[in-house]
Amino acid sequence: MPTISRDEVAHLARLARLAVTEEELDLFASQLEMILTSVARVSEVAAVDIPPTSHAVGLTNVFRADAPHPGLTQQQALSGAYATEDGRFRVPRILDES
């Protein structure tokens, strides 16, 4: 039976970039453990010699024609931005400058 600790949930939340609250840590720890327990049996059903399926309808070598075609204009690309500056996305600092 998989067990999942509160610390482990906090780690997952950090990896997933979710600033979860203390209450959520408790809630998700119990719920994730419950869900994982119920799905754990998949690890017993299929033998390793069964090939995995990643796509239901297999297509191989899907290429588009190597021809130029227009993409979004700068204005379209920026149309949903929270903040822009000089025609670019303005984002919070990405390095620790303090």
């Binding site: 999942i4 997933a16 959520e24 994982l36 998949v42 059903v45 299929a46 399926t53």
Partner: peptide
């Protein structure tokens, strides 16, 4: 949020084959 964390867990190193890999075999 629940599903993002569940997926993050199932894809993490050490669990990948037991969960995601096996689920793909079940799919077969």
């Amino acid at each position: 949020k629940r599903r993002i964390m569940l997926g993050t867990y199932a894809l993490s190193a050490g669990y990948y084959d037991a969960y995601y890999g096996q689920a793909q075999r079940v799919r077969t």
